[in-house]
Amino acid sequence: MTKEIIIELDNVWKTYKMGTVEVHALRGMSLKVKKGEFLAIMGPSGSGKSTAMNMIGCLDIPTKGEIKLLGRDISTLHESDLAQIRGKKIGFIFQKFNLLNTLTAKENIMLPMTFQGIPREEREKKSEELLGLVELKDRMDHRPNELSGGQQQRVAIARSLSNSPDVILADEPTGNLDSTTGERVLDFLKKLHKEKGTTIVMVTHDKKIAEQAERIEFLKDGSIVKNL
């Protein structure tokens, strides 16, 4: 049985204007991600990885082409609709963790649920569950600056799971971590994929990291290539 396609990029172009010069960050990128897949998009810096990530993550819309998320074309949606999709369907893990420093670990995990209007009790329960999953229950009342890099990234993983998204997007998730901590974070992602069947799209420039995924797609000069 063929698996359902969860993300589909069809001839996606993204062009930025820098003064009078047009810069093509993506040049006709096409990609299909199936449900339950762990995909790595690998490419050198400047290859358009981050732009691709922003497109898949509904943070930006393409200049040309079509992006379908769960069969719905998102390339023409308004910012408020995109925000809703981001909140419900996508979980982000960033290279720099991007936790809110004023909130505790638990509150950081609760925040995406707050934006979805989930009642407080449910939010608390879910966030504690997720903290248990990333083995940080004893750190739930700590603020990000009281946690190590690895711990912060695990909180970010827990946060990305808070609204039970259809896909997790990880942008260089180990980029700011040492190799041992990085491995541990990757192990968490693999565990999530294996045990819960979560769809994960990971962007990296590191071959070793990319090899941890089920499938690797190579990105060069804004389009998918066979190899680098």
């Binding site: 910012e79 981001r86 991007n98 809110l100 934006f115 979805q116 946060r159």
Partner: peptide, 16 residues
């Protein structure tokens, strides 16, 4: 600004 970006990424609408 960074914080606003994070909140938007995790689902905050303009109105939030």
């Amino acid at each position: 600004t960074g914080e606003i970006g994070i909140m938007k990424a995790i689902g905050a609408r303009n109105s939030d």
